[in-house]
Design a protein around this nucleic acid. Structure first.
Lengths: 143, 143
DNA sequence: TTTTAATCAGACAATTTAATCTGGTTATGT
DNA sequence: ACATAACCAGATTAAATTGTCTGATTAAAA
């Protein structure tokens, strides 16, 4: 069961946080990420290829190749990763699944939900991956 | 694309809000709900059968039968409907999909997300369906 | 130069979720 | 009594998501 993000997106967030925690110029093969985070190798590989197209991650082919962050971790917001994988429909779609839910055709819980949604968006848009370095290291250590 | 609830759950919430808006002792056939809310008839029927087992909805068989609320709308919280259909794992699972995410093994965004999750839970647990009568009528009118 | 270890592309398989179908049972109203 | 209109139960199909496999290409290291 996923909470709000797809599995792809969850894994993408995990992988980017992991790479950020490993330090700047480190090259991480998909195999390593797969083992550390217990994500199927081919799957995480695909996801990182996606993020490469989006310019968040970079890749190096051939022996001793792998994936690395394309920018400084302080320039990568959580929302950028979500946007690249799941898109931002989450923040525009109706939580009750009503068609064309908007300020002039609001669903019953439009206002109540809108508040929470805005807070979630703000959080994801203000937090950058460098902020989670310590916590990621601790978490991985306990897995 | 669903936001946080499954399609089943979205439709369940819509249907209960609709029945509540229609007034107290009204009997709503699945066909009517299906047409008004543009939900496949057989599907909404299944969902309402679920909610009947959970004691939120009641049903009457035979001609001029249909579904009705099993309790007073002021006694049905939004969270009750969510719990009956999707369950409450949503509020316990890790938003990043990490295994065994808990206060002593927190994922990187555990605290930040925890706040938002609590607020969402509180909202769903404090709001009862009777509170949305006006808004539901308005919304249905515009569909 | 050859082996090796990696990304990458695209097809394929499995699983979960969403939706449909068929037939049965029930009770109302004519 | 009988036709009708509803719920109900279970099987089936369809679609979306998740995960796997094969082979090609690339580039470093032996």
């Amino acid at each position: 069961m996923t909470v709000i993000f797809s599995k792809k997106c969850e894994y993408g967030l995990q992988a980017v946080l992991y790479m950020s925690a490993k330090g700047n110029d480190c090259v991480c093969p998909a195999e390593e990420i797969s083992k550390k985070l217990k994500i199927p190798k081919e799957f995480v590989s695909k996801i990182l290829q996606n993020l490469t197209e989006s310019g968040i991650v970079d890749s190096k082919k051939g022996k001793s190749g792998g994936f690395m962050l394309a920018k400084d971790p302080s320039k990568i917001r959580l929302i950028d990763i979500v946007a690249a994988i799941d898109g931002l429909d989450l923040f525009n779609s109706c939580v009750l699944g009503f068609p064309s839910c908007s300020p002039d055709k609001p669903c019953p819980v439009h206002d109540k939900w809108g508040e929470l949604r805005s807070k979630a968006y703000e959080m994801l848009a203000s937090e950058t991956v460098d902020k989670f370095k310590e916590k990621t290291i601790k978490k991985i250590g306990k897995m």
